[in-house]
Design a protein around this nucleic acid. Structure first.
Length: 339
RNA sequence: GCCGUGAUAGCCAAGUUGGUCAAGGCACGCCUCUGAAAAAGGCGCCAUCUCAGUUCAAUUCUGAGUCACGGCA
């Protein structure tokens, strides 16, 4: 049954069919990376001619160099798994932040290149916006962040910023998050420099690829358990050393300050009421045994919270096919490829 | 055993010289998302240790009890 269909679609494929892209997403610690590797090298799937996967990162932190342990980079995972080529991992200095728009350009270029070589790209990661940028082909306002203007606007209060924005973009003002300074600043930035209202510049373009989105998730309690275990493992793998090394080399860059597993080691990192976190944790970089344990708990908590936020993002995406295991995923991939 | 201090949400923690009391913060639940996204922001949820007294009215004042912490012995 599939064979007949196959020959039929084979023809049209060459004419105007978009190239295929498989997206694997889910919350942190759900097992995306392992699943992707297995799918990419699956013997069952390799029967299909030309099927041979390469992985492209869709994770806003795994792109940075030297942050392997804290971001659970695939480079140090599951030594038993087959070797698959990974792209856009571990390649940016943590003092040169990468943003969505730049990421999108690079990812698309990488995906197209993989397709050109006759291989199947797997976009793998948990950063909702990054995935969306590719899947929905988001068209970002062509306006690079302006550090000077941002600094200037940063001094103002949210109501003040809202006042400014209202004058520049009436329609946008009705919808924007009034209390969110970061968004207001970006919106003003775009309006001021491009001379056009921000809201009309947020657009989607025609999708670039024929996309299958596979989501993997676990029940909440199980995911929490896995996160705790993984955090413990990070400490054993030498997270402390990694953090120290990075801080020594780059200082507390915005990236390091904004990454779970790293920021917690910082002196001024916010203590947590619920955990009764001691002030002494400000000496985290020379942490005592007790403090380290608390630090580990804090990192686990932050990771669990992050996982929930990720799910909030993914829940909305109705095109995601949620699977429980490799078999289910493999079946979906097979159908997708034969389609 | 005696003296002192305290007891407010799952945790931390304000004010009320008596007026439907109940600020914050964290956790927890839900959500928003177009160049910082592991970011930023929004909404929701939960409370005065027990018993008695004074009073029109007690979370607040008084007494006793219970528990906790500190000191003395």
């Amino acid at each position: 049954m599939l064979k007949n269909k196959d020959t039929l679609t084979q023809c049209s494929k060459k004419v105007n069919r978009k190239s295929k892209l498989i997206v694997i997403l889910g919350p942190t610690a759900s097992g995306k990376s392992d699943l992707a590797v297995k799918l990419a090298k699956s013997p069952a799937l390799s029967k299909i001619e030309g099927f041979n996967g390469e992985i492209v990162c869709a994770d806003s932190r795994q792109v940075y160099r030297g942050m392997s342990i804290g971001t659970a980079s695939p480079s140090l995972r599951s030594p038993g798994l087959p070797v698959v080529i990974h792209h856009l991992f571990n390649f940016v200095e943590p003092n040169k932040p990468l943003n969505v728009a730049t990421y999108k350009k690079m990812a698309i270029k990488t995906i197209k290149d993989i397709q050109k070589r006759g291989k199947m790209p797997f976009l793998v990661g948990g950063t909702g916006l990054y995935v969306k940028a590719i899947v929905d082909n988001l068209k970002f306002p062509k306006m690079e962040p302006n550090a000077k203007l941002r600094k200037e606007l940063e001094q103002k209060t949210a109501p003040q910023l809202f006042g400014i924005y209202k004058k520049l973009d009436k329609k946008g003002a009705l919808q924007i998050d009034k209390n969110n300074k970061r968004r207001l600043i970006r919106a003003i930035e775009v309006c001021k420099i491009t001379g056009e209202p921000f809201w009309t510049q947020r657009q989607k373009a025609i999708p670039l690829f024929d996309i299958l989105q596979i989501g993997i998730n676990a029940p909440k309690t199980e995911l929490e358990k896995r996160i705790k275990k993984r955090t413990e493992k990070m400490f054993k793998q030498g997270l402390e050393k990694e953090v120290k090394k990075l801080v020594k080399k780059y200082g507390w860059t915005p990236v390091l300050q904004n990454t779970i597993g790293y920021s917690e080691w910082r002196a001024s990192s916010k203590p947590l009421g619920g955990l009764d976190f001691p002030r002494s944790h400000s000496v985290a970089l020379t942490a005592s045994h007790a403090t380290k344990k608390e630090l580990q708990e804090l990192i686990s908590l932050h990771t669990i919270q992050y996982a929930k936020r990720q799910m909030t993002w993914f829940k909305k995406n109705e095109r995601i096919l949620w699977v429980k295991n490799y078999q289910e995923a493999a079946r979906k991939v097979l159908t997708f490829l034969n389609d």
